[in-house]
């Protein structure tokens, strides 16, 4: 049987797609577990960055709840010592950045004070907005041990608050400060559901 040229072309495209998809899915399956392991190890490392290992004694990475409130999903790791809650590490994302979602890890002590904040993932402009990474700038450390009672001053300077903005990038730090503030308020209001 002889195929017409269009049919032949279609057959080739189909064949190539099949092979390339096969290759990609083969690599995907070969790397899936390793990638998950990397992400888990990175999570453990990140958890330790916002919350000292000595301050809790439970299996933090596996003691979590997920709560959705007003469209925002929070994944919350619960830190306990001698079965008493000491802190919560909350993962959250904000879409108020300059480019796509920014995901954050926020550790809040049981009294509501911020312990520390780190950025997990972002696509902000390299060289401008990416100063939110600790690797590039110490800015994110300004959240360390932040007492809850000053919460009305949690804003970038341009908005009349206490936090520095970066040269050429106000949107990115504003998004983070606002998200930390919203998360702190969320924690205050829903603490009884978390623990």
């Amino acid at each position: 049987m002889k195929l017409t040229p269009p049919a032949q072309a279609a057959l080739r495209i189909g064949l190539f797609s099949f092979i390339i998809i096969g290759l990609v899915s083969f690599v995907y399956h070969a790397t899936k577990d390793k990638i998950a392991l990397n992400e888990h190890q990175a999570l453990l490392k990140n958890l330790q960055r916002v919350l000292k290992k000595q301050s809790y004694d439970n299996d933090l990475a596996n003691d979590f709840v997920q709560i959705t409130k007003s469209g925002q999903t929070y994944k919350i790791y619960r830190a306990r010592k001698l079965n008493k809650p000491v802190a919560a590490v909350i993962t959250t994302t904000t879409s108020q950045g300059y480019n796509g979602n920014i995901s954050l890890l926020i550790a809040i002590n049981i009294n509501g004070n911020i312990n520390a904040v780190r950025v997990l993932n972002h696509r902000e402009t390299p060289g401008l907005g990416d100063a939110i990474e600790l690797k590039k700038s110490p800015w994110i450390l300004s959240f360390n041990n932040l007492p809850l009672q000053n919460i009305q001053q949690w804003a970038v300077k341009r908005d009349g608050g206490n936090f520095d903005q970066f040269t050429g990038a106000t949107i990115t730090p504003r998004a983070i400060v606002n998200e930390v503030k919203a998360t702190a308020l969320f924690f205050q209001q829903h603490q009884h559901e978390i623990f």
Binding site: A9, I13, F16, I20, L23, V24, Y28, T31, N38
Partner: peptide, 28 residues
């Protein structure tokens, strides 16, 4: 690679290569 369909095939190959590089880097 037939000349009539070379461009879609190139796109397919390049997208596949980039995805595979990304996955391998992500893993190792």
């Amino acid at each position: 690679i037939l000349p009539e369909i070379r461009l879609p095939l190139f796109v397919l190959i390049i997208a596949g290569v980039v995805t595979i590089i990304e996955l391998i880097m992500h893993a190792w």
